[in-house]
């Protein structure tokens, strides 16, 4: 008789209770992500590692038919001066069946066929391939037997890709800047 329903006391107001639950769970999930991401992301390369400057290299130090191994971003970097025979061999094989097809032209800077600049890490598991070894006279990886040709292309063995070409540019005829 004239009673007004007491919404607060009855406890059968699901929408209010649900709202509190959802708000609490959402806030906690947000907080978990908020602290979780920094804990995960701290393991990514730090600012000083990312800031590692690019390096310059004087090509006149490399004798024809030889290579120099530099350290760039903690990885070995091959700078190879190819002989005319090696270049001819690489071009001749452009049409051969390859796992990661690329022409020799795509592997060096235009008009600079003599110079190969490559990251010296086998694309299989990152070992450093040895200069001049293997069935194709380019590089041979001692770890699991990958053979690279004189253009740094994978020809035989488990590696999936050609030796990586880093970002680099010729500053002059005898100077390159890597990175």
């Amino acid at each position: 008789m004239g009673e007004t329903p007491d919404l607060h006391a009855s406890g059968d107001d699901p929408s209010r209770r649900d709202f509190i639950h959802i708000a609490v769970v959402t806030t906690m999930a947000g907080a978990a992500v908020g602290i979780g991401w920094p804990l995960v992301n701290q393991m990514n390369p730090a600012g000083d590692t990312l800031a590692l400057a690019s390096i310059e290299f004087d090509l006149s130090k490399v004798a024809s038919g030889q290579q120099v191994v530099l350290k760039w971003r903690g990885k070995p970097l091959f700078v190879r001066s190819r002989t005319p025979v090696e270049i001819t061999k690489a071009i001749k094989d452009d049409g051969a069946e390859m796992r990661d097809p690329q022409t020799d032209e795509e592997r060096h800077k235009p008009g600079k066929a003599e110079w190969l600049v490559l990251i010296g890490a086998c694309t299989h598991l990152g070992c450093v391939p040895t200069f001049g070894g293997g069935d194709y006279g380019g590089w041979f990886c001692p770890c699991h037997g990958s053979h690279y040709d004189t253009s740094g292309r994978i020809r035989k063995g488990p590696a999936p890709k050609n030796l990586e070409v880093p970002t680099y540019a010729f500053l002059s005829d005898t100077k390159v800047k890597i990175g």
Partner: peptide, 12 residues
């Protein structure tokens, strides 16, 4: 890269 904390196995 995340495991290494850099671009190669190094101090990190």
């Amino acid at each position: 890269t995340w495991l290494w904390g850099g671009f190669a196995v190094d101090n990190a």
